[in-house]
Design a protein around this nucleic acid. Structure first.
Lengths: 335, 335
DNA sequence: CTGCAACGTCGTAAATGGTAGCCATAAGTC
DNA sequence: GACTTATGGCTACCATTTACGACGTTGCAG
């Protein structure tokens, strides 16, 4: 492989000039520039990234840590991050934290050890303190899906409470009063925020929150199955079910269908996240839009702006969820 | 940050010895080893990966190029690759090719330029010749989802024709004779292979293949929608629809439901891929299992075995699809 | 008992391929 | 003639890996 020396020699210029041409910060005469460019092309020269990284102490790589890679949730986010970063010629190194504190920390260390210039983190298990301390280190971080007031400008997040509120208010406005809620895991921040929103909406309509109508799911389809079976078997009355994410809705609906219940005839459902599949499930899911892909993109832009000093980029930190009304919820008793 | 030099000094040994302790390939006396280890711990020493890469000319990173990151398909694959590689302390750099030749080639160059030790490629648009040539380069590659006879040992793939055959044979065995087929994009290898399997099954049952009953979709939900509308509007008779992937089935079913058609009462469906959602769609999808996550894992293991010389790893190149019978297909006329 | 080869252990120093800053020089500009 | 701009030529530096060689110990043959 050709080195920068070979290029310099072939172009008849010095090392320094070649370096100047590549890092177009200083002035180089047009003619010499062309000579150098020609030499680089002839030799099929590619700067050795290892050497560049060593000398400049930066790798042009961004570590992205997500909770999981499968499931409908993170794909769109990763896609946006990759494309935004790639356009800036940065590359993304991925790691998975599995919503487990030890694994999350381990992954952060791993990414740091790999010399990432910055980190995009979607972590759930790790403490606020850990993240605050981490943010004071040499490697900049951005948080997706999490709000920590001390480092709020590094947080890209959704107003989950508002989303939870919107979902429940929708069924309340339709006339439902007996509303079951399938929450996400209590250890997850967003799950609790969504639940708070749910409670807030109930309170606003003077409906008392019954813990017995709230079931803690796992954010997966199967959690919806288990929750629905539990709820149905508990012989409690309810005409609507609000789920903390769409995957659980789909699980829950599948149980209803199996038991001969009509959706939304007998039971109304509202989901959360607006995953791509939501519109192809039958009935089409009424849900709360979670612009996760935009948040991914924003995290990438934040980095580009703040780390690589690419200004003229506008970043928004907080995203507001919106209700997407489709067909899974309607007035009670209106079969 | 402490350097290897600091460690050497503190341990009272030379640079080389410290290096030897880290890369446990050569012999170091137990006593010195302990001294070095102690010094490293005291200084919280972490080798600088940039320098390691420069000196060793290897980065411990694997480039993974996939067609897309969103959708239900690649997530599980990426998850397996990441976990297998991470366990071996390698990291994965991702790139997206978008099923476009130019972008795929660009991504390969990008990954190569980043000094990846090896590449895992799931590419569709690029030619066999390109890949054969690439495989002769310095950087080893593994292909997922593609078979090229010249480099067959580097291919990890599914017998797609068999899968297509299985899907169609299933509805044939149920008694269907008028069978529509929604194919994937003709430019994709796997789409054509699946279609071949379909034709083979038809022939076996002496049913003539009608091009008018075959519609080219795009492998996405919306393609299923478009295909179904087209098929339904064409006023042709058919009692079963075989789709080249599950996403299109879900789109197709949503059209049927909207038009008041019962599934599988009026129309039977068979999908392909067995995506996680397949069992939560109503009716639960009868489909062909595509062990994409296992193939991802296998690709990673192949690399570990062949590049990093980690023997005692068994690798399988070809995976066989299996029919998963659930509820979306039944006998014709049996409502 | 001795001589020496083999071996394990460790240090020295040379790559590895760049970046970046400094200063000198030459040519062009006002 | 002072000033600016383009370029060359050095050199220090980045943190490792690795070839090569030195040194001491051991075991074995003569």
């Amino acid at each position: 492989m050709a080195t920068i020396y070979d290029v310099a020699e072939r172009a008849g210029v010095s090392l320094a000039t070649v370096s100047r041409v590549m890092n177009k910060n200083t002035n180089v005469g047009e003619k010499t520039k062309q000579k150098v460019l020609a030499a680089m092309a002839e030799l099929d020269y590619r700067p050795n990234t290892f050497a560049q990284s060593l000398a400049s102490n930066s790798s042009n790589s961004i570590g992205v840590l997500v909770s999981q890679l499968d499931g409908p949730y993170y794909g769109p986010m990763m896609a946006e991050i990759e494309s935004a970063l790639r356009a800036a010629n940065k590359h993304v190194i991925i790691a998975v934290g599995h919503s487990d504190a030890a694994q999350e920390i381990d992954s952060v260390e791993f990414l740091l050890g790999r010399g990432c210039d910055a980190l995009i983190l979607d972590v759930e298990a790790v403490s606020d303190e850990y993240l605050i301390e981490l943010s004071q280190g040499a490697t900049p971080i951005v948080l997706i899906n999490r709000y920590i007031s001390e480092i709020s400008e590094r947080c890209i997040y959704l107003d989950n409470e508002l989303g939870g509120y919107l979902a429940t208010r929708h069924v309340l406005e339709l006339g439902h009063r007996d509303i079951a809620y399938v929450s996400g895991p209590k250890r997850k921040h967003d799950a609790n925020e969504r639940l708070e929103g749910h409670k807030k909406a109930l309170a606003e309509f003077d409906v008392v929150y019954k813990p017995s109508l709230c079931f803690e799911g796992d954010y997966k389809e199967d959690g919806g199955v288990v929750a629905m079976e539990h709820l149905l078997d508990s012989a409690q009355r309810f005409s609507a079910v609000v789920c903390a994410n769409d995957q659980m809705v789909s699980g829950a609906i599948s149980v209803c269908l199996e038991r001969g219940l009509k959706v939304p005839g007998d039971l109304s459902f509202v989901g959360y996240d607006n995953i791509p599949f939501a519109r192809y499930i039958s009935p089409k899911l009424t849900t709360v839009n979670n612009p996760i892909h935009e948040m991914g993109k924003m995290a990438a832009l934040w980095l580009l702006k703040n780390i690589y000093k690419n200004d003229q980029l506008e970043v928004t930190n907080v995203f507001v969820p919106e209700l997407v009304v489709r067909g899974s919820a309607r007035r009670p008793g209106n079969k």
